[in-house]
Simulated scan of single mutants.
Amino acid sequence: MIQQDHLQIFDLTLTVRSPLFIGDGRMYTKAEYLYCTRNGRASLLDEQKFFTFLTDRGLIDRYIQFMLCNQSNLRDFLTEDCGVSDADLNALTRYTIEAGDAVTNPPKNLYTFQRDAHDRAYIPGSSLKGALRTVWLLQAVRADQSTGHSLASDDNAAFPEEQYVNQLHLRLQKDGSIASDAVNSLFRGVQVSDSKPIPNERMALCGKFDVLPDGSFPKNSKKGIPLFRECAIPGAAVRFKLTLDQSVLKGRITKESLIDAIQQFDTYYKQTYRARFKAPSGAVNLPQQPHLILGGGSGFFAKSLAYPYLGEEKGLRWTAEQMTQMFSNHKHQDDVKPYGISPHTMKYARFRGQFYPYGYCEVSIL
């Protein structure tokens, strides 16, 4: 730790234990990326260079035909049908990573990881801060001894987190009460940098699977949902700077309280949610250390505080109602019975032939 007056600056490291997906909102189809079964690598193209190349080579019409046909491998089409050399393809490539499941399955839609202007994968500080905020709030909710909590049953229902975090007296209402806004948020005193770049050697494509409480896959989904995600893989160490401004926090959020909040969240998550699910065949046994769970695929339970706020029974019924309204075709009316948990599926990634729950990371703060 570095102490600079009221600022405490820490090195925070996420050690990825299961595939971690922080999406950039982009999706690529079979016609927009390459994968090579020979070396097990997938490549993202520079779109501008690629279309200039197709135009210069007179391949636009053939490329349109490829997009409309059942042929699924763009790399095979370019090399075998169009005679494009490996050297030409390399010149059109932005970056290359491990293809993962794409080697043994036909290419599907590919969702990419957050990258900077130099195409280096990284995790925005806002993603990590959001996860830290969630675990800290769970700790605060569980310490709250008040009873009778409730949430509206409509689509606009929101967890009232402001009553826990908007505790500063920097701005008051006309009646003298604390204004419930970001000006008074404790988390003004928590700053998280964007991570250092994640090497492409620590990135790979992973499939996505839904698993039911009995460990089985929903009907017709044993081969997975038709998409791949670009993920940071198990073993990747992702580094950040965490700054705690104690002139704002005044000891209410510390390194020790954040570590304790992660431990409490991990225990609560295991006992209340994960214990309801049997692991599918081929699932890994993750280390027993406390985990922070974040990113795409980590699921509703890792991002919502409905269960601890309402209590398990009331939280189950409220969540089932919300899920039924939002996803009417997914049979969430059965979440209370027979499943006893809502949502009634857990998201798994498949990487190198094994199944992992998404987004498990160990945290070190030094």
Rank of each mutant, 00 (worst) to 15 (best):
M1R: 13
Q3S: 14
L7D: 02
D11P: 04
L12W: 10
L12S: 00
D24C: 10
G25L: 11
G25Q: 09
T29D: 10
T29Q: 08
Y33L: 05
L34V: 00
N39A: 04
G40L: 08
R41Y: 09
A42L: 13
S43G: 05
Q48W: 08
K49Y: 00
F50I: 00
T55N: 05
D56Y: 01
D56N: 06
I60D: 06
I60P: 00
R62L: 03
F66A: 01
M67I: 07
N70W: 06
N70E: 12
N70Y: 07
L78T: 00
D81L: 11
D86R: 07
N90D: 15
N90R: 14
A91G: 07
T93C: 04
R94M: 05
Y95G: 01
T96R: 06
G100K: 04
D101V: 05
D101P: 02
N109P: 02
Y111H: 03
T112S: 07
F113K: 00
R120N: 12
R120E: 09
A121C: 13
Y122T: 02
V135D: 01
V135A: 01
L138N: 01
D144G: 12
S146Y: 13
S153T: 15
A157K: 08
A158R: 15
F159N: 02
E161R: 08
N166K: 10
H169T: 14
L172C: 08
G176L: 12
G176P: 07
S177M: 14
A179G: 04
S180E: 14
R188A: 06
R188K: 13
S193R: 14
P197I: 07
P197G: 06
N200M: 08
N200W: 08
R202F: 11
D210Q: 10
P213R: 06
P218Y: 07
K219S: 04
S221P: 00
E230W: 08
E230V: 05
E230G: 01
C231T: 14
A232G: 15
P234M: 13
A237F: 10
V238T: 10
D245A: 05
Q246H: 11
Q246K: 03
S247Q: 14
S247W: 12
K250S: 04
G251C: 06
I253G: 00
T254M: 05
K255I: 02
I262T: 00
Q263T: 11
Q264N: 09
Q271N: 15
T272I: 15
F277A: 01
P280V: 07
P280S: 06
A283S: 13
A283W: 08
P287Y: 13
Q288P: 05
S298C: 13
G299W: 08
F301G: 04
A302V: 03
S304V: 04
Y307M: 12
G311I: 15
E312N: 11
E312Q: 15
K314C: 04
G315S: 11
E321N: 14
Q333D: 15
D334G: 01
P338Q: 05
G340A: 09
G340H: 12
S342Y: 09
H344W: 07
Q354F: 11
Y356A: 00
Y356W: 12
Y360G: 02
L366P: 11
